[in-house]
C-alpha cells in the first residue's frame, strides 16, 4: 500500500518546526508502524536527506520509548498498544497519516518526534520507591498481601511511563502517570508506611515540572497503552487528602 505522511520536522529545541510531506511507497500491511518509518528513513538517507528522528527501543510494547501522536491519537488508532505494536494493516491504501511528537512544556522537544521525558524520571526519583533495608532476602509470602491489593498494585504497575497520558490530556497533565506510581507502591504493605510522604513528594515534583492540572477529561485513560484507569487519579486525590494533615519535618523529597 502507498501512504502520504505528514511528519513534524524540527532540527532542535530552538528551531522552528513544520509538518513535512513524505510518500511511503509499497508498505507491507504486515509491517509495524516503526518498520514503515524505518523504510522511509532508508529512502531519505539514500537521497542524502536527514532521516526522521524518533524514539524507540524494545519494539515490543514494554519500554515506553516510542512516543508519537498518529492522526491526533497517542500511539495511533488502536487500543492499549504502543506505536511499535501498531501494524500498518490498521491503515488503508492511499491514507494520509499525520505524525507529531508529544506536545507538553514538561516534555521539551529534542528533535523531530523525539522529546525529553526526563521529567518522569525526576518524579520517580522524588519518591517513586520504598525505603528497603539491606540484608538477607526476605521469605516469600512473609508479608501477607491480599489478592485484591495485589491486583490493584499490578494494574498500576503496568505503567511503562511512555507519556501518552500527558500527550493526550487537553491540559498536558501527568496525573495518570503519577497516580499509577503513587498507587502501585501505596497499596502494598511495603510501600504503605511511606504513602503520605510519597504522595506529597511526587505531587510537588509533578507540579514543579510544569505539567498541567487534571480537569477530569479522562483522555489519558483512553490513550494509555496499558489500560490504566482514571480511578487511580481518584485514589491519589484520596491519598493526598489523607496525607495533608500529617505534618512532618521537611521530607527528603520535598512536599508540603
Amino acid at each position: 500500500m502507498n501512504l502520504t505522511l505528514y511528519v513534524w520536522r524540527q532540527k532542535g529545541p530552538k528551531e522552528k518546526g513544520s509538518l513535512e510531506r513524505y510518500e511511503a511507497k509499497h508498505v507491507s500491511p504486515d509491517s509495524s508502524f516503526l518498520e514503515m518509518l524505518d523504510e522511509v528513513n532508508e529512502d531519505l538517507i539514500k537521497s542524502g536527506k536527514d532521516p526522521i528522528v524518533f524514539d524507540h527501543d524494545c519494539r515490543e510494547g514494554i519500554c515506553g520509548m516510542c512516543s508519537q501522536m498518529i492522526n491526533g491519537i497517542a500511539h495511533g488508532p488502536d487500543t492499549e498498544i504502543t506505536v511499535c505494536q501498531l501494524h500498518m494493516r490498521k491503515f488503508k491504501d492511499g491514507d494520509s497519516i499525520y505524525i507529531e511528537p508529544w506536545r507538553a512544556k514538561a516534555f521539551p522537544l529534542i528533535s523531530d518526534l523525539m522529546v525529553d521525558r526526563s521529567a518522569f524520571d525526576r518524579i520517580i526519583e522524588s519518591y517513586g520507591y520504598t525505603s528497603a533495608h539491606t540484608g538477607g532476602v526476605p521469605d516469600g509470602n512473609a508479608i501477607p498481601v491480599s489478592k485484591v491489593n495485589a491486583d490493584i498494585a499490578m494494574d498500576a504497575a503496568a505503567c511503562i511511563g511512555c507519556g501518552a497520558c500527558v500527550a493526550a490530556c487537553p491540559n498536558a497533565s501527568a496525573m495518570l502517570f503519577v497516580s499509577a506510581k503513587v498507587s502501585h507502591l501505596g497499596v502494598l504493605p511495603q510501600g504503605e508506611v511511606e504513602a503520605a510522604r510519597r504522595v506529597k513528594a511526587m505531587v510537588s515534583q509533578m507540579d514543579a515540572e510544569g505539567f498541567g492540572n487534571c480537569t477530569n477529561h479522562y483522555e489519558c485513560e483512553a490513550a494509555c497503552p496499558k489500560g490504566i484507569k482514571v480511578t487511580f487519579i481518584s485514589r491519589m486525590n484520596r491519598e493526598l487528602l489523607k496525607a495533608i494533615p500529617q505534618v512532618e519535618k521537611k521530607a527528603a523529597g520535598g512536599g508540603f
Partner: peptide, 19 residues
C-alpha cells in the same frame, strides 16, 4: 491559564475520545 501554559504548541491534529 496554567493548563494553557503546560502545552505551548498545539497539535496540528488531535482526536479526543473520552472528553
Amino acid at each position: 491559564l496554567e493548563n494553557k501554559a503546560a502545552r505551548p504548541s498545539e497539535y496540528a491534529m488531535k482526536q479526543n475520545h473520552r472528553t
